[in-house]
């Protein structure tokens, strides 16, 4: 019995699967997010041709512009992963650098989205103009909110790190932010192809 209890002595850092709680929780959350975006994408796909008297997707979409902002978001995934890699090596300087660059690229993407929405609105594509416009704005808006939340989290983490207040493992915090950020990126990979590149 005593041997068993020696094994059983409480250690908060070991888990039954040997995996980190936070990481497991994060992947569960991302699995769940698949169904959220799946629902929004399906709604858009169902309604994309229902333009009523409003503009059609092909009339308003500016493919060169969106291609560039898609490229920016894709590259932010690279800078993010470099940040995670630096964090794992305990390289604070490069962690700051890459995380800051990631946030900046993310902000560029969101800025582009704001510009795009404004341009669309000026071309007569309001939120309530047609089923196409409503479902388009809801889908891309949700994605934009996810990116914005990501930027806020990246910037906050930088601030908290500067004051060295990150509770728990710093590199794991950055890694979790990375998972979230890449997820937002892969959602955009799908949105860009299905929504922008396939003509209605």
């Amino acid at each position: 019995m005593s041997a068993d209890h020696a094994v059983a002595s409480h250690d908060t850092h070991t888990t039954s699967t040997g995996l980190s709680n936070v990481k497991l929780g994060m992947w569960l959350f991302l699995g769940s997010e698949c169904l959220l975006f799946g629902g929004l994408i399906s709604t858009y796909m169902l309604y994309r041709g229902r333009v009523g008297t409003g503009p059609t997707p092909m009339q308003v979409f500016d493919i060169p512009f969106t291609s560039v902002s898609s490229f920016v978001l894709l590259m932010s995934s690279l800078t993010m992963v470099l940040g995670v890699s630096a964090a794992h090596k305990g390289d604070d300087r490069n962690t700051y650098l890459w995380v800051a660059v990631t946030a900046l690229l993310g902000a560029t993407f969101v800025g582009g989205q704001v510009y795009e929405f404004t341009a669309f609105y000026n071309e007569g594509m309001g939120f309530t103009t047609s089923l196409f416009t409503s479902s388009f704005y809801v889908l891309t808006g949700f994605h934009g909110v996810h990116v914005t939340v990501g930027i806020i989290m990246l910037m906050s983490t930088l601030g908290i790190m500067k004051r060295s207040k990150v509770p728990g493992s710093k590199s794991e915090t950055i890694e979790m932010l990375g998972l979230y950020w890449h997820f937002v990126d892969i959602v955009w990979i799908i949105i860009f192809t299905l929504i922008y590149l396939i003509p209605v």
Partner: peptide, 20 residues
């Protein structure tokens, strides 16, 4: 998350004039 989508669409319809 599926009902989340549905409820969001409903809220956008009722509160912001969409017609889903």
């Amino acid at each position: 998350p599926v009902i989340t989508v549905a409820l969001f669409l409903l809220s956008f319809q009722r509160n912001f004039g969409a017609t889903f």
